[in-house]
C-alpha cells in the first residue's frame, strides 16, 4: 500500500515537473528528430532469472520474470520502464534537448530499490526470497529522485549515459545527497545476433548507503550488529545478446556482475562483495 502511495506521489511530482516545462522554449526542439516523436514501443518480456543476491542469507535462486517494458513519448514527455533490467521503477521525464549526439532529460526514477518495503514487488519480479534474510530490520523505502539525465550517442552502436540526482528525501526531508551514475554501452552485430555490453559506475554518498546498509540502534539484534556505512562506488558489467526469432519475437540472454561499494561489503546486511545475475527470456514486441 505504501509503495502504491509512493508511486502515486512520484507520478504527481512528475506531472508537476512536466507542467513546469510545458511552456518552456525547450519544447520547440523535439519535432526535428524522430526519436522523441509522439508514440513509443511496448514489449512483454518473460523468462528465467538466476540471482546471487547481495543480501545476507538470500538463497541462490532462480525465478520466473515477467516484465512489461515500454517507452512512450508525448510532446517530449516520456514514460519508460525497463523492467528488472532498468535502474528502477518506471521513470517519467521530459526531454528538453535532442540534437544529433546529445539527449538531455529531466527524469524521475528510482535510484535504489526498497528493502523489506513491499514484498509484492519482489514476488512480481519472481525473486521470491531475496530479502527474507533481512527480516527484523526496519524497512527502507525506495530512493526516488529527480535527476538530470544526459545521453551521448558516440556512434550508431555506442552510447554514454550520465545521471545526476543531488536531492534525496529518504530521511523524510529533502536533503543534498548526491547520486551520480555513468553507463557506457556498446552493441555489435554478428550475423543476426546483436550483442551488447554495458559498464557502469554509480556513486552513492554516505547518507544513502547508511540508510540502506547501515545497522542503527533500532535494527540491532543478535544477527545484525551495529554498522555504519560510508560513501562508495558500485561498479557493474553486463554482457548480453538478442536474437530476433521473427518480426515480433526476440530471444534474449544476459549476465551481469555488480561489485558493491567497498564501504558496505562487510555490512551485516550484505553477503559479499559481488552480486551476479543471469537471465534467459523471450520478448514479444507489441509495437
Amino acid at each position: 500500500m505504501n509503495s502504491v502511495l509512493k508511486q502515486i506521489s512520484v507520478f504527481t511530482l512528475s506531472i508537476l515537473v512536466i507542467l513546469l516545462f510545458t511552456n518552456s522554449a525547450f519544447g520547440q526542439n523535439n519535432n526535428k528528430l524522430s526519436d522523441t516523436e509522439n508514440g513509443g514501443f511496448l514489449e512483454i518480456n518473460t523468462g528465467i532469472l538466476a540471482l546471487n543476491s547481495r543480501y545476507i542469507d538470500a538463497p541462490e535462486n532462480a525465478g520466473v520474470i515477467a516484465d512489461l517494458r515500454f517507452s512512450y513519448y508525448w510532446r517530449g514527455f516520456f514514460l519508460e520502464n525497463r523492467g528488472h533490467q532498468g535502474i528502477g521503477f518506471p521513470g517519467v521525464g521530459y526531454n528538453f534537448y535532442n540534437e544529433d549526439t546529445w539527449m538531455l532529460d529531466i527524469f524521475i526514477t528510482e535510484t535504489h530499490p526498497s528493502i523489506l518495503w513491499d514484498n509484492e514487488i519482489d514476488i512480481e519480479n519472481g525473486v521470491l526470497n531475496e530479502q527474507d534474510g533481512l527480516i527484523g530490520i526496519r524497512p527502507r523505502e525506495s530512493d526516488d529522485r529527480i535527476a538530470l539525465r544526459a545521453t551521448r550517442f558516440i556512434d550508431d552502436t555506442t552510447a554514454l549515459r550520465f545521471l545526476i540526482a543531488p536531492i534525496s528525501d529518504t530521511n523524510g526531508i529533502a536533503e543534498v545527497s548526491p547520486y551520480l551514475a555513468v553507463w557506457y554501452g556498446k552493441t555489435w552485430q554478428y550475423q543476426n545476433i546483436n550483442f551488447h555490453s554495458i559498464y557502469s559506475a554509480q556513486y552513492y554518498n554516505t547518507s544513502t548507503l547508511q540508510y540502506y546498509y547501515g545497522v542503527t540502534d533500532e535494527d540491532v539484534s543478535e544477527k545484525f550488529q551495529p554498522y555504519k556505512a560510508h560513501s562508495g562506488v558500485s561498479l557493474s558489467a553486463e554482457f548480453g545478446m538478442t536474437y530476433p526469432l521473427s518480426a515480433d519475437w526476440l530471444f534474449e540472454s544476459s549476465v551481469k556482475l555488480t561489485r558493491l561499494p567497498d564501504n558496505i561489503h562487510n555490512s551485516p546486511l550484505v553477503s559479499g562483495r559481488l552480486e551476479s545475475q543471469a537471465q534467459i527470456s523471450l520478448t514479444y514486441v507489441i509495437f
Binding site: 517507452s71 550517442f153 552510447a159 553507463w183 551488447h196
Partner: peptide, 12 residues
Amino acid sequence: KKQKSRLSWRLF
C-alpha cells in the same frame, strides 16, 4: 526507425 531511442533502449 527511431534508431537512437532504440539503441539507448536496448542498452540502458
